[in-house]
Design a protein around this nucleic acid. Structure first.
Lengths: 213, 213, 213, 213
DNA sequence: CATGAATGAGGTTTCATTCAT
DNA sequence: TATGAATGAAACCTCATTCAT
């Protein structure tokens, strides 16, 4: 998209070929992405220096700038990976069989599950959007919106056939729910008492209960 | 609390005495706090330099360091102001008269209302906690927790007398709700269609509906 | 002129107060300007690092950036000093008494004299204009043009009263002459046989001879 | 001449064989030379990166380093091409028939003409000599000097037979004249009012007039 | 109370060049 | 011939903070 380094190799989208850790097995871009994700979540984007990232990934600064145009670009790659994954999963639930209430419940629970499984991504997502360039913020927000709309459509389907209350805009319900989901990164601890599945059930329950006519 | 400059004059708690803008009418600490709040919300803590803050506040760097020990200290002051205000309001609703469901509904709607009235504070709150020193992060989290607990107690009260469902931990309900509230800073726009009061009503509705046995 | 650091102290215009060497006697900006001039002439703008400049001036990098917004700004300051000095001298000759041919000869000889006395400035002037920001290039060119116009007016005065030939545009004569003057930096060596005064006389002679009707 | 890669194929001397543009028609070295010339003139040697050159030429970095030992080598090739061309032309005029004054006038006008026809080369020539390695600077200067000497000989010839004044060293006249010529790159614009031929005539006129006894 | 010059460590990025393929 | 990933040194600059006045 007009990027001055668009000729550089693809990366980040398909990490299956060579693993996804920061060990020397994975590809250089993958290792960088992993290290960046961990560090950005751990101490924040601005508190993480490029030096720290490349050291954690075991590559040189030059190598990093060969694959990523900037530190910002690295952050953006994290966002892209998360967004793609979330959209993929939602699509699966949305197009599944079964009554809408069940599909919504499943999708709602799954997004929680996925979120706690990728807490680092979630933390970064919430905290560092404003560190992206305005253009990229917009790109992320746009994709975000598409995701929300997909979710909203499920709710509206239920409203139309009368299984969900209609005196509340589906929009509000969606933002309310995802607010809660994003917030997970602020309090959920994997080593706590609650499993991700449990939280997912509770959240889905609250959502469905809230939508009861 | 172990602060090296505890002898410095109080500030930030009471902005009523001399106005609260950044104009030359308000006191120096107030002007700094206002400028910092605006800039931190606008471009993030990390992207805001001390120079920018003092310029926006119309004071010199020396003056700033006279009132605030550090940039971090300035951020902390923002947090303190927000926390104190929120707690004050919640306390009022919690100790009011009337059935618990009504009091919860009112408090829940009010926190939304207050949040959209102070969106800048909310944005900073969500985004920049990790920029505080670990000690201060803990201080903020502790105060936060007290706030949540106060809210949780209201829900538990309702659960005990049977007006709220009990098969969901009150904790989960609280975090779910505040997740949504904090998220407001990410999408609510004062110049949009929805008033803060309307969103508050919807949110409170969803909360109460979700708690219906 | 809209410069983000316009509040910084004046510098470079008046170096008489505290000497003009790079020794510790002169002011910090003066020392920086001296060191920069020497180094830029010696090895070129791009080949000179900020580190080298501040080391030669005996100040820290931070101090330099306190007085000069950028390396570019330092170069611009060199240009400003040269331009101001040249204009001041030309004005003196232009407004002196005597026949126009004599005044032109004196001014023409003097500009050579001054140029060889400040060869470093001249070398930089010729070589590094393109390293300035476009805006500043324009500023320099504009001042340059004013200087040339002042010189051209003297020639036109002579043409009008018939002491200079009129079949050659005064413009051409001026640019031709200053081309030769600027070129001095490329070949004149202070330790060579020719004194600056001698070269000045020859150049002025050629100019006047060329203008003979 | 001591070049570590002297075994590489000849280039740059004869651009007629395969065109001289940067299009895919010309040979790789020619395309590189064209692109480099344009970019060096446009933004300066230092501001032009190897990446930009190879992109403009439509080749890869590896290809460039196959034909040119370094970026410096590319710049040197530009100098060589210019020098060879200038010397060739001067030789033609110097060895032509006719009175010395006419031959000098023709040569003087021609060098102006050629210069404005190759303004990019001229700009680079003036501006970037100091970016060459010291050895190559010397090589260029030496060739330069040979050129000047050839020109000076013409003047001395005229002085000996009494058609030129002798009270000014021919050296001075030469440097004066070429200073003016080199300066053309600083002010002459092909799209301006003056043709190169017109400027050449004026310059030659001034030169000859200046030499009148 | 307030100033503003000075610090100095650390930040991101660029770049010419090499080398295994 | 040609590729393009990788290097690593060095570049410019920012910034929170201090301190003498």
């Amino acid at each position: 998209m007009g990027n001055p380094r668009d000729e550089r190799p693809e990366h980040g989208q398909d990490r299956s070929s060579s693993g996804s850790g920061e060990g020397s097995a994975a590809s250089v871009p993958d290792r960088l992405l992993s290290a960046a994700t961990r560090l950005f979540a751990e101490r924040g984007y601005e508190r993480t220096s490029v030096r720290e990232i490349v050291e954690a990934a075991g590559v040189t600064k030059g190598a990093m700038y060969h694959y990523f145009a900037s530190k910002d670009d690295l952050l953006f790659a994290v966002y892209q990976r998360v967004l793609a994954m979330q959209m993929r999963r939602l699509e699966e639930f949305a197009t599944a069989e079964g009554p809408i209430a069940e599909r919504l419940r499943a999708a709602a629970a799954d997004v929680v599950h996925t979120t706690v499984d990728n807490l680092e991504d979630t933390v970064i997502f919430q905290r560092s959007l404003h560190m992206l360039s305005p253009e990229r913020q917009n790109e992320v927000r746009k994709e975000r919106r598409r995701y929300h709309e997909r979710f909203r459509e499920m709710i509206e389907d239920g409203q139309q056939i009368g299984v969900f209350r209609t005196d509340i805009p589906a929009d509000i319900v969606v933002t309310q729910y995802f607010g809660a989901v994003h917030h997970l990164g602020m309090w959920y601890r994997p080593d706590g008492e609650l499993t991700g599945a449990a939280v997912g059930d509770y959240f889905a329950d609250l959502l469905l209960n809230g939508l009861r006519p």
